[in-house]
Nucleic acid binder design. Structure first.
Length: 861
RNA sequence: GCCCGAGUGGCGGAAUGGCAGACGCACGAGACUUAAAAUCUUGCGGUCUUAAACGGCCGUGCCGGUUCGAGUCCGGCCUCGGGCACCA
């Protein structure tokens, strides 16, 4: 065969320019076709693309191109999630303005995305840092505010006392500031929240709608993140103090087993008890020290069962309303203010954490749930017993099954007025305030007379000033910018101060998929017609690391906006594919490890098509992918092998053209182009004259088309789809080896069919190669506008199949049988085979299990 | 720690309860070539018997279970990875 190579350096840029000039990936609403919205999680413009991006975008590009060929009107957009910390860090470290840094990174990454040949509709690109985008982020904030879904409350932030600045969790390393190594503490600030908990029930219930399209594990993670739990709130009186302490418990059935009470160190009651003098001054000093110590622990450390439990008795008692018993009140590091009411009842007999706490501090253990068959004894317990059983030592509830008891106890409390049945969630409201300058400013002003006043729509956007001073110390640059802070109250016209916090970048990324539907709308975030035509996203693809936060926030946003009438869908992402990471030599690519593979280098050396092909071939999409330099070499070789397969067959295909009448409408017919219809008809006529080799090749071709169609449509198995393409290529080579002395007339037709279908199938994976080959086959229109090839079930079906005969589960014989044999026939054939008869001679056949078309298992004794 | 995953040849992986190792990489052999590269053909889990496997046995992280049959389902571990609310 000819020793030619695919000249990707010349071909790839040429086709990229062609697609861009012809705008073939720009889409409009079109009700004559079914729509398909294919979406990749948009990148943060950190500088250059990394292999994780290439993997993500190659997956979505294959899906988009495949669906286009299948006749869908495909929306495939791209943009940049371009607010965030790295731009501010660049400003602090290099003195470049965040906007300039961001813009130049975007330019570089866009260039690389274009070099990879992704079929984006660039006319719809969104950039969250631009005014025309964040204007609408602010508008949406105000919509939520007006609906009562945005509110302010006090919440702690990480605080570096030396830099006098707020730190992100990422900037706290082992409890210390990443820049100056000072011990980080907590500061309370008044901050904005979104009321996502109002949607907790629906976010949980609607996971059912995603059963088909989302991975089980992501739904499970969200379910556990929201974590609905049913239980009861119970009010405990405080001895000598006129305030009730409300606790939440999922086990009201154990309420008679309470031997102590614990609140979070930051619980408000502690302060009030100190102020009321119920906690002695010496004790109060200890409390302060304890609170300071807890502040330096993060949540993971506090809730870890490995962490030593620390506690401090306050010298105050609370009264169990069920039995009037007084139990001591404690503070402890393992109780969080964020969950439930920040107060938990201590039932050491039936809760492991309480058990450990009671053991450490010498508190009573009282069993109130017994297993009558194997009674437990307080003195001998080595761990808590959370199991079900019968209620004992529980006053009027004795003898009740504990599960029944849960409801009865709660109902009793409700009746008596000291408690009620409650549902709580682990999910907390979404804190969106960030003390940073490179984000969408929260569009609110504070007026001495009018209070908190939203900025009117016609004054949006609240702009980030261009002349900010980034130091990395002290308050946010926005808060230090006089021109920004000083404002006029929109309500009374008097002097006012602007809110200086910006929004969490997750707010920007909670609605970008709706902006893509109508990205250039200057009057609204989107039009109803567009958003309701394109939404929901049919296939969303991104990293598993977003399983909870981004995906949950976006679901919340969609539901809240639906309730305000801005969009008509319940869920934003009908289907989700979570792709694994790209690693090298067993660990994450990182500069410090020096194992970073640059997409740029790979494109220069092997071309975009090889790069795309390898990254899709090396691993199934959900799994982590180990990058291999030798592997991409293999993909590069395959592309050349494919190229030679097509180019060397061109004379035969020209010949095939002369055998077939050109049908009306085939404009490229004179150039040698054959339509799929012409080929199918020609082969239909040639059918009686086909040799076994012809039939075999046709079988491979049609079976492969079928398999790849299903791999792409049903299960996103790009790796096996590509291996199918390789097998098909191998089959064509084997066929051509035998072609020399065969009937030239028929074999050229079969070959033409094989080549043409192969080129169509490879189009979503290697779009440049495919378009180039399509042109060489005489076609005049881009292959990406052609329909996906058809396959014929009858041609794909094998005449004979090999079945396996097992004896007691071990393979003992292989037999060729006609394809459609029944189970009964298979059983007969298997038992009649010589080798089988020898092996079962003298033994008793207990059972025969025939599996049609696959195997027969004979069980003998 | 808690929640969620993953583990198969020298390597990446394939196998929807039914032949473990498709396809590719690496490596070996052969063809072509003055030579090399490229290309084409071919072999390739371990082990035992054997002149030779078209033979036997073992083998999908470990231990146990369900089943005629388990890489696949169930229970218990081990190791690695993702998330844990201010990285995005």
């Amino acid at each position: 065969m000819a020793e030619e190579r695919f000249d990707f350096r010349e071909v790839e840029p040429r086709w990229q320019k062609y697609w861009e000039d012809k705008k073939i990936h720009e889409v409009k609403r079109d009700t004559s076709k079914p729509k398909y919205y294919a979406l990749a999680m948009f990148p943060y413009p950190s500088g250059k693309l990394h292999m994780g991006h290439v993997r993500n975008y190659s997956i979505v590009d294959v899906i988009a191109r495949f669906r286009r060929m299948q006749g869908y009107n495909v929306l495939h957009p791209m943009g940049y999630d371009s607010f965030g910390m790295p731009a501010e860090n660049a400003a602090i470290q290099k003195g470049i303005s965040p906007a300039v840094w961001t813009k130049s990174n975007i330019a570089e990454m866009t260039e690389q995305l274009k070099q990879l040949g992704y079929s984006y509709d660039w006319s719809r690109a969104v950039y969250t840092y631009r005014e025309d985008y964040y204007k609408w982020t602010q508008w949406l904030f105000l919509q939520l505010y007006k609906k009562g879904l945005a509110y302010k409350k006090t919440a702690p932030v990480n605080w570096c006392p030396s830099c006098e600045t707020v730190l992100a969790n990422e900037q706290v390393v082992d409890g210390k500031c990443w820049r100056c190594d000072s011990v980080v503490t907590k500061n309370n600030l008044s901050q904005w929240f979104f009321k996502i908990t109002q949607y907790a029930d629906e976010l949980l219930a609607d996971l059912k709608l995603l059963e088909k399209g989302w991975p089980d594990r992501v739904r499970t993670m969200q379910e556990n993140w929201i974590a609905r739990s049913e239980g009861a709130m119970v009010d405990f009186a405080i001895a000598g103090f006129d305030e009730k302490l409300t606790v939440f418990t999922t086990r009201p059935d154990t309420i008679y087993g309470v031997t102590f009470m614990v609140v979070a160190p930051e619980h408000g009651i502690v302060e009030r008890l100190i102020n009321a003098g119920l906690i002695t001054p010496e004790k109060a000093a200890q409390v302060r020290t304890f609170q300071e110590k807890t502040k330096s622990l993060n949540e993971i450390a506090r809730t870890s069962t490995d962490t030593e439990k620390e506690g401090l008795a306050l010298g105050v008692s609370v009264i169990n309303p069920f039995n009037g018993q007084q139990v001591p009140l404690w503070i402890a590091n393992y109780v969080l203010m964020e969950y439930g009411t920040g107060a938990v009842m201590g039932v050491p007999a039936h809760d492991q954490r309480d058990f450990e706490f009671a053991k450490k501090f010498g508190m009573d253990i009282r069993v109130v749930i017994q297993n009558p068959a194997e009674p437990i004894n307080e003195a001998e317990m080595t761990e808590a017993c959370p199991a079900a059983g019968v209620m004992v030592n529980s006053g009027p509830f004795d003898g009740l099954g504990n599960e029944e008891g849960i409801g009865k106890v709660a109902a009793y409390a409700e009746e008596k007025g000291f408690g009620k049945k409650t549902v709580t969630y682990r999910l907390r409201d979404w804190l969106i305030s960030r003390q940073r300058a490179w984000g969408a400013p929260i569009p609110v002003v504070y007026c001495e007379k009018c209070g908190t006043v939203p900025v009117p729509d016609d004054q949006l956007p609240v702009r980030i000033p261009a002349d900010l001073d980034f130091t990395g110390h002290g308050t946010s640059p926005l808060a230090r910018h006089e021109g920004f802070v000083n404002a006029t109250c929109p309500s009374c016209g008097g002097p006012a101060r602007r809110e200086t916090d910006t929004m969490d970048t997750f707010v920007c990324s909670s609605w970008y998929f709706m902006r893509y539907c109508d990205a250039n709308n200057a009057n609204a975030p989107w039009s109803q017609e567009d958003v309701n035509y394109w939404m929901p996203v049919d296939q969303y693809v991104g990293g598993i690391e977003h399983a909870v936060l981004h995906l949950l926030y976006s679901r919340f946003f969609t539901k809240a906006l639906r309730d305000m009438g801005h969009v008509a869908v319940d869920e934003p992402f009908a289907a989700l594919l979570t792709q694994g990471m790209v690693i090298k030599d067993g660990s994450k690519m990182s500069k410090s490890k020096g194992n970073v593979v640059s997409p740029e280098d790979m494109i220069v050396r092997y071309g975009a098509d090889s790069c795309r092909l390898f990254i899709l071939f090396a691993s199934p999409p959900e799994r982590d992918l180990d990058w291999s330099d030798a592997g991409i070499e293999g993909s590069y070789r395959f592309i050349n092998r494919f190229y030679r397969m097509v180019t060397s067959a061109l004379p035969e295909i020209q010949h095939a053209r002369t055998l077939l009448p050109v049908k009306a409408g085939n404009m490229a017919g004179l150039m040698g182009a054959i339509t799929e219809g012409e080929l199918a008809e020609g082969l239909q006529r040639a059918l009686p004259n086909l040799a076994p080799e012809d039939k075999e090749l046709r079988r491979v071709i049609h079976r492969t088309v079928k398999r790849i169609t299903s791999d792409l449509h049903d299960r996103f198995a790009f790796n096996t789809a590509i291996s199918g393409l390789m097998e098909m290529t191998n089959a064509v080579y084997a066929y051509r080896d035998k072609m020399g002395n065969r009937d030239w007339t028929i074999s050229t037709l079969v070959l033409a069919e094989a080549i043409q279908k192969a080129v169509l199938i490879i189009a979503p994976f290697c779009p440049h190669l495919a378009d180039e080959m399509w042109t060489k086959l005489g076609h005049h229109q881009s292959i990406h506008l052609e329909p996906w090839p058809a396959y014929d079930e009858d041609v794909a079906r094998a005449e004979m199949v090999e079945i396996v005969v097992q004896i007691n589960g071990k393979v003992r014989e292989r037999l060729d049988v006609p394809a459609g044999v029944t189970a009964a026939e298979m059983e007969q054939i298997a038992l009649a085979a010589d080798k089988v008869r020898d092996l079962i001679a003298g033994k008793q056949v207990v059972k025969v299990i025939p599996v049609p078309g696959k195997l027969v298992n004979i069980v003998v004794k």
